[in-house]
């Protein structure tokens, strides 16, 4: 599902359509297996989507512990609600939507526990993430700026630019139109550009 930046890896529309069809077929077979309650089906689901689910959760929640809790909660919700899944959307889209809701529920719970005013469901200040292979300064700055985006913009940006979902997938996950998804991404990137240039200026103005 991830869009490839490498032109060599780009595929023709017909090949892409064929791959999508196969993906959807696998998707619905997996959904059917999960519906029977088979643990191996859930394990397969974890193998297929676990890494991406964890990544999204971490980018939304800011720490590994909460991210793993959110992924676990998403699996439990999928298990509880699989009978209500009628295939209106792709199974994977449904799972990611559940994960996003789990992340927001978890954050709300934490905020309530901390008795802090629930403003914009911003991620926690500290970002306790696994060390990246290349801690690029621009990446760190970008992460800080993404955390300052409003939830809708942040979701679209993370899902499109970081996780590589298409606008149609994001639209299905967030219950918005494709045009809205594109517009939100544009607004998110515009704001990020402004925030990045502001932080760049403040770094330059600091005495060395």
């Amino acid at each position: 599902m991830r869009r490839s930046d490498d032109p060599a890896k780009q595929v023709t529309p017909s090949a892409a359509n064929a791959r999508t069809a196969v993906g959807l077929e696998e998707d619905s077979a997996l959904a059917e297996a999960c519906r029977t309650g088979s643990l191996s089906a859930y394990e397969q689901l974890y193998q297929k989507h676990g890494a991406r689910l964890k990544s999204i959760a971490l980018n939304l929640l800011g720490n590994v512990h909460d991210a793993e809790d959110a992924v676990q909660e998403a699996f439990l919700k999928v298990h509880r609600g699989i009978r209500s899944f009628k295939g209106q959307s792709a199974f994977s889209t449904w799972i990611y939507r559940i994960l996003l809701n789990s992340c927001y529920d978890l954050r709300r719970k934490k905020q309530r526990r901390q008795e802090t005013p629930e403003q914009d469901l911003e991620p926690q200040g500290t970002f306790e993430a696994p060390a990246a292979a290349t801690d690029h300064p621009l990446r760190l700055a970008l992460e800080a700026c993404v955390a300052r985006l409003s939830p809708h913009y942040r979701n679209v940006f993370l899902l499109f630019e970081v996780e590589g979902f298409s606008h149609s997938e994001i639209a299905a996950m967030l219950g918005i139109s494709e045009a809205s998804s594109k517009n939100m991404l544009y607004q998110a990137k515009r704001k990020l550009r402004r925030l990045l240039s502001e932080s760049e200026k403040s770094v330059k103005s600091e005495p060395s």
Binding site: L39, V71, E161, V162, E163, K189
Partner: peptide, 24 residues
């Protein structure tokens, strides 16, 4: 921005997560 965002994808080993989910 798009190029750097690609590096924001997080990946880490969590060997205990699937057993935990399975148990739950």
């Amino acid at each position: 921005i798009s190029a750097v965002a690609g590096h924001m994808r997080k990946s880490w080993d969590s060997p205990g997560l699937w057993p935990r989910i399975q148990q739950a």
